[in-house]
């Protein structure tokens, strides 16, 4: 029998492990990002500035380097940055001329709307289509949908984004060309409908990335379940609502894994979609920061890692609710 202390101790231990993993992951990813950017050409703002303004004296360059701390070795710079992060200071975004935390906060609000819309849409559509395919596995509707999904899987996000833009915005004129609100509008006066209107195409673009995958995985699992002994036995017992009673929970695990594990693709997809649709989210901020704005770049890296990590962690936690076998997996 499990003791009371064990019952409390295990979740606590799990939280501890998650935290440890999360922190080490964040540390490792920032180290990699920091040193990759330090060896990349055009790495610092000084050089970018000098290229734009020839005729700056070496003395001034040195002074600027000292001001920004760029004369220190990369390790020392990283340690300084890490110390600041730990004290809550994410640095100052040189391209936005605002603190990194503030930029990320504003941009993330736009991005999270986009990503969540895409995530929910791909989740419902993918799971639904997957269920239809799995239920009718081997029949015409399954074969047709399966081909559609395989084609979808092979289409890159940037391409489908451009197609959407050309077709729905340019040809049909149903949706705006980009941005998150009408050009020149006062952000306080923009209605939720206008925002949603601007959100539709980017969200569809991002969701196209993962819905087909989810559908195919769900199909496979449901087709397996339909062939399983327990579905056969349920039929032999004359049970009603067999799919809802026995299949649903059994096909949730791969779907949940896919959907929460897709946070990384979601983020990657939103970077591309935001650039196509000039949507002012984290993704477009990231691309803008790429060349010179190291604090923002690192801040977004940190944030995206955290985002993906949270997705995976939620999936892990949900497992134990869906599948009792996972809970005992120690």
């Amino acid at each position: 029998m499990r003791t009371a202390a064990g019952a409390i101790g295990r979740p606590l231990k799990n939280v501890g492990i998650y935290l440890l993993r999360g922190v080490s992951l964040l540390l490792a990813s920032t180290i990699i990002a920091f040193f990759l950017s330090s060896i990349a050409p055009q790495d610092d703002p000084i050089h970018a500035y000098i290229q734009a303004n020839p005729g700056v004296s070496a003395e001034n360059v040195a002074r600027m380097e000292e001001y920004w701390g760029l004369n220190q070795p990369p390790v020392a710079r990283y340690v300084t940055w890490l110390k600041n992060i730990l004290s809550g200071d994410m640095g100052y975004s040189t391209s936005n001329r605002r603190p990194v935390a503030e930029v990320i906060g504003v941009r993330f609000r736009a991005s999270i709307a986009l990503m969540m819309a895409a995530w929910i849409f791909s989740g419902i559509l993918g799971f639904g289509v997957g269920c239809i395919m799995g239920r009718f596995a081997g029949r015409l509707i399954d074969r047709v949908l399966k081909r559609v999904c395989l084609v979808m899987c092979s289409i890159p996000t940037f391409w489908i984004g451009i197609v959407f833009l050309v077709f729905f915005s340019v040809t049909l004129g149903w949706f705006p060309f980009g941005l998150s609100m009408p050009i020149g509008a006062n952000p306080d006066e923009v209605s939720i409908w206008q925002r949603l209107h601007h959100l539709v195409l980017p969200a569809l673009t991002v969701s196209f990335l993962s819905f087909a995958n989810l559908a195919l995985v769900t199909r496979e699992k449901l087709a397996d379940v339909m062939e399983s002994g327990y579905i056969l036995f349920a039929k032999a017992r004359g049970e009603k609502w067999i799919l809802r009673r026995h299949a649903l929970r059994n096909i949730l695990i791969p779907a949940v894994t896919m959907q929460f594990g897709s946070f990384s693709e979601l983020f990657g997809g939103s970077v591309i979609a935001e650039n196509i649709f000039s949507y002012p989210g984290l993704g477009s901020a990231l691309t803008a920061s790429g060349k010179t704005d190291l604090p923002l770049f690192l801040g977004i890296t940190l944030f995206s890692v955290l985002f993906v990590f949270c997705g995976n962690m939620i999936a892990n936690i949900l497992y134990s609710f869906i599948d009792p076998r996972v809970k005992r997996g120690d």
């Binding site: 399983s228 327990y230 032999a236 004359g238």
Partner: peptide, 21 residues
């Protein structure tokens, strides 16, 4: 009408039970 009421199957193995119920 009859299966599960008057006609019952005793299946072969654990495979015939829903693993998550």
């Amino acid at each position: 009408k009859l299966r599960g009421r008057e006609i019952a199957l005793v299946p072969q193995s654990v495979e015939y039970l829903d693993p998550l119920m």
